[in-house]
Structures are given as structure tokens and as C-alpha cells.
């Protein structure tokens, strides 16, 4: 079993808008896979279908050999898919640490064990020093990190990251990239990310899928994909050519 995630012919329509149009791709176990495309290309909708927020109108999603497209978000998380939200959703009144403890409790019912695991995850994402602050007090980049930490604490096999680099400074982006690379190397964590920050995509992803108007326009290694005329025209624009 090479592919951890396999999306076959998935479509989703919202009234008149065909948000995702017959999209298929496979994510190999242990790999890092990026989905890019202009705003409104259907990336987040595709993510929400994989994470169980929406059922697709057509097509199927298979994870670890089982069909998951009819499952609820919590069941999908229990199967081993962790996710972040593009518009971050921390538990604002709780401390940073408690936010992550709640994630850790999925696999560790004992609060003390969950807390120990949460602290390891927090240290990995440079949030350990801020663990006692309420989540509502964090800056946006820190909230994005908290989203990653919380999802990671559920010990997913596949991590879905929805624009976690947005708003990060270049140095912070590099820190996040190296944290994700470590997770991928050390634990074989498979990562599927939506990203606009090409610096991160080029550094992380082994394969890239490009969406435009809900449909696939290119897929392949990042260096090759960014040279494809269709991709340059629809997404990257003139500045990416030079």
C-alpha cells in the first residue's frame, strides 16, 4: 500500500458554483504534497471534503485503504487525519497548553500523559514559553503555530495544513518549514498542505497539485510545475517567470 490518501474524481457544487471539479490525486505514505492555486480555486473546499466537513457530490476519498468520504469530521480525525483551519479556530479562553492537551487526549486518556505529550509538541513548535498564555492573547503567527500543534497532538498519520505560513515572516516560515521537515523525517508523517507561500512549497513538497476554477491544471514535482505555462498564466503571474 503506497498511497495513504487517494482522491478519485471528486466534485462539489455550491448552488451555481462548481467549487471542485472532478479532481483526482494520490498522496504517497510519508510524502509531503502541496495544493496550490489562486484564491477561489477550490483548495479549501477540497480540504474540507477530505476532513469530512462536506460530503462530495461525486467521487470518493480513500484513506489508508478505507473509504472515508461519508464519515464525520471527528471520525476522520480518529482514523488519523489532523487538520488546521485557514481562519484559525483556537479555544480562546483556554491556555495555549490546554488547547494542545485537548488534542493530545485523543490518544492519551490520562490528563497527565496528555499534558506531557502536549508539552513536547509545544516545544517542537516554539510555543513552550507561551504555554500559560490564553490562546486569545497570541499573535496571528502564533495562533497558526498553535493550530499545527493542536492537530499534531492528535498524532495523525496525515496532517492537513491550510495556509499555515500565511502572515509569517521569512525567518518564521523557515522555522515552520524545518519543524515540518523534521516531523516528516523523524516520524514519517505524511503532510498535505495548501500554501500560497511558494518559498515554503518549493522547500517542502515533493509533489504539487495546481487547481484553477476547481479543476486540476497541473501536477508534478514543484520545479517542473512552476515552469508550466498554464500554471504561470493562471496563478504565479509574470513575477514568477524570472
Amino acid at each position: 500500500m503506497m498511497d495513504l490518501l487517494s482522491v478519485e474524481g471528486v466534485s462539489k457544487r455550491f448552488r451555481g458554483l462548481l467549487a471542485v471539479d472532478n479532481v483526482s490525486f494520490r498522496v504517497a505514505r510519508g510524502s509531503i504534497f502541496a495544493v496550490i492555486g489562486p484564491n477561489g480555486a477550490g483548495k479549501t473546499t477540497l480540504f474540507n471534503i477530505i476532513a469530512g466537513m462536506f460530503a462530495p457530490d461525486r467521487g470518493s476519498v480513500d484513506f489508508a485503504g478505507e473509504r472515508i468520504d461519508a464519515l464525520a469530521p471527528d471520525e476522520i480525525c480518529r482514523r488519523g487525519i489532523g487538520r488546521t483551519f485557514q481562519l484559525v479556530r483556537p479555544f480562546p479562553a483556554l491556555s495555549v497548553e490546554d488547547n494542545v492537551v485537548i488534542g493530545a487526549m485523543l490518544r492519551r486518556h490520562d490528563p497527565a500523559a496528555a499534558r506531557r505529550h502536549a508539552r513536547e509538541v509545544l516545544a517542537r513548535l516554539d510555543l513552550f514559553g507561551k504555554r500559560h498564555q490564553p490562546a486569545s492573547a497570541l499573535t496571528l503567527p502564533d495562533r497558526k503555530r498553535l493550530e499545527v500543534a493542536r492537530a499534531l497532538a492528535t498524532e495523525p498519520k496525515l496532517l492537513l495544513l491550510d495556509e499555515v505560513m500565511a502572515g509569517l515572516r521569512p525567518a518564521e516560515t523557515d522555522r515552520m518549514v524545518s519543524a515540518l521537515t523534521e516531523l516528516n523525517r523523524e516520524f514519517g508523517l505524511t503532510i498535505l498542505l495548501i500554501e500560497h507561500v511558494m518559498r515554503a512549497v518549493m522547500a517542502l513538497a515533493a509533489r504539487v497539485l495546481v487547481l484553477h476554477h476547481g479543476a486540476r491544471i497541473a501536477e508534478g514535482a514543484p520545479a517542473a510545475v512552476v515552469r508550466e505555462p498554464a500554471v504561470i498564466q493562471s496563478y504565479l503571474g509574470a513575477e514568477a517567470v524570472d
Partner: peptide, 18 residues
């Protein structure tokens, strides 16, 4: 902890397997 997660944000709580 799970109750507080639901109180704070139910969608996020579900995404954590609750």
C-alpha cells in the same frame, strides 16, 4: 477538557476527534 473545547469552538473540537 472536551466539554470546554465544545464550549469554545465546536467545529474545532470535532476536528480534534471529539
Amino acid at each position: 477538557y472536551y466539554w470546554q473545547a465544545i464550549r469554545e469552538d465546536e467545529v474545532a473540537a470535532r476536528s480534534l476527534g471529539i
